[in-house]
Amino acid sequence: MLKPRPEPVQVVKQRRDAALAALVESIPYIQFLGVRFDRRGDELTAIMPFCDQLIGNPGLPALHGGAIAAFLEVSAVIELSWAGLWKEIESPTITPDQIKSGGLVSIPKTIDFSVDYLRTGLPRDAYARARVNRSGRRYASVFVEAWQDNKSRIIAQATGHFLMPEPH
């Protein structure tokens, strides 16, 4: 039997990007922070463009610790949801419209979130990548780190534990 031809690259990219956009747009707080996500294959990078309302210390000025924590937490939540949805997006048994309607996709709930502040957040764009260290049926543990101008100079890192949604 002949192997089926691989899908055209535009079709694959369009489907993945639409699914990611639908997931991100379904969460209002991500829009409030102005956070976007870049995708390379299944790898995500979160971007928080600088804006005045993220400032916590107007004198320096520096990013608010709460804004940095929120950025890390949304990065972790999206990474975890994205990793969970990946198989379905690829099959594809789930469409971006279904993700958008919110009916099928459940967001993991944060159990705890612990942030280390390593450097002052400058008035610049910030980037973050999360890594799911363990994802079981009920619980997941996610590590996430954020940087600005230099990837080697981490401004904050966090570990969070999440309660996984019941399978739909």
């Binding site: 520096a62 159990i111 705890d112 979130f113 612990s114 502040y117």
Partner: peptide, 9 residues
């Protein structure tokens, strides 16, 4: 400035 903060939900 915050050194570290842990929140339990």
């Amino acid at each position: 400035a915050t050194i570290d903060l842990r929140v339990d939900y």
